[in-house]
């Protein structure tokens, strides 16, 4: 799949990677192609690719001159750290404000939250990233700069690849706070869109459940409003919220492409951006594989959660 897509792109990796001068020299181009097997017919290229893949070899990146696998090993945890924080924040804030919005339906709080969430959903993430970087870093100097750590701070011993977790494991609190300070701004930027999305969907899910007969029945039993809300309403609204959270995570990952480039975050998104713009095909295919796998696991997790939440969805 990723192989077909990447080969359909109308671009020539040879000219993109050789530089201005060399690409005007037909001999150099031919040599480059032969070296990278690009002179072979596509089916043979594909067979070779699969063969290498089976051995865990994703090829060599033409930009970093390192195996793609090595690049990905470094990039995936960086993105995961960012994306996990962003989705957690989105869930916390989005679900809470969606519930508040629904409970205050058509009152001031609801109107404010609806306008805000609409604003967040429709704001382009890359634009927000640029503005945030300019305002909070350039102008106010509140946020830490680009990258995962300040220059001069060494990365903690690699255990999970998540700097915050690794720093805690190593007991390096200074490194931990430094990593957190670098995470916050890009994570918040990524959060904006998904928070808006989750607020809107949670609101409508909660409103839908509030009108259900089983909520009226729960009230008729004289249960305290808090119990009705937590046990009956939120439980009922959880399935649509989880569905949207899964989709939101996908949106969030695609948001990393530009956000990571702007914040010079050494993650998957920035790597995807660089390799796509330079037609670094092995790298693009590697990124595609990883992203595909992540989507697969997210969907799997969503399905498992359906079963946990809703007994009707359990396989008998």
């Amino acid at each position: 799949m990723t192989f077909v897509l990447t080969n359909l792109v109308p671009g020539d990796p040879a000219t993109a990677n050789l530089g201005e001068q060399a690409s005007s020299d037909p001999a150099a181009v031919a040599e480059y192609r032969r070296q990278h097997g690009l002179d072979q017919p596509l089916p043979i290229q594909y067979a070779r690719y699969l063969e290498d893949l089976a051995r865990g070899d994703l090829g060599q990146s033409q930009q970093s001159h390192q195996p793609v696998l090595t690049d990905l090993r470094a990039a995936v945890p960086a993105t995961m750290e960012l994306a996990a924080l962003a989705i957690l924040l989105s869930l916390l804030v989005g679900v809470a404000s969606g519930v508040v919005s629904a409970l205050h339906r058509n009152r001031l709080g609801d109107h404010v939250l609806r306008v805000l969430s609409l604003l967040f959903v429709s704001m382009p993430t890359f634009w927000l990233a640029l503005v945030a970087f300019y305002v909070f870093f350039d102008q106010l100097g509140w946020a830490a700069g680009s990258g995962r750590l300040d220059p001069g701070v060494t990365a903690p011993a690699n255990v999970t690849g998540l700097y915050t977790v690794d720093a805690v494991l190593a007991g390096q609190w200074f490194t931990f706070w430094n990593a957190v300070s670098h995470l916050i701004l890009p994570a918040l930027v990524l959060t904006a869109h998904t928070v808006g999305l989750l607020t809107r969907f949670t609101r409508s899910a909660v409103l839908e459940v509030l009108s259900q007969d089983y909520v009226r029945s729960a009230r008729a039993k004289g249960l305290p409003e808090r119990t009705v809300l937590v046990h009956y309403v939120l439980r009922g609204a959880l399935v649509p919220v989880i569905t949207v959270a899964g989709l939101a995570f996908g949106a969030l990952l695609s948001g990393t492409v530009l956000v990571e480039s702007i914040f010079a975050w050494p993650g998957l998104g920035g790597y995807a951006f660089r390799s796509a713009t330079t037609f670094d095909l092995p790298a693009v295919m590697g990124v595609g594989l990883v992203i595909g796998t992540i989507y697969l696991f997210v969907n799997l997790a969503v399905d498992v959660l359906y079963g946990v939440i809703d007994p009707r969805a359990r396989v008998q």
Partner: peptide, 16 residues
């Protein structure tokens, strides 16, 4: 005072 509602299929929470 308690009430038994008209539609039995919708008055119980499906996930509890």
């Amino acid at each position: 005072v308690s009430m038994v509602f008209q539609d039995p299929s919708t008055c119980l929470h499906p996930m509890l």
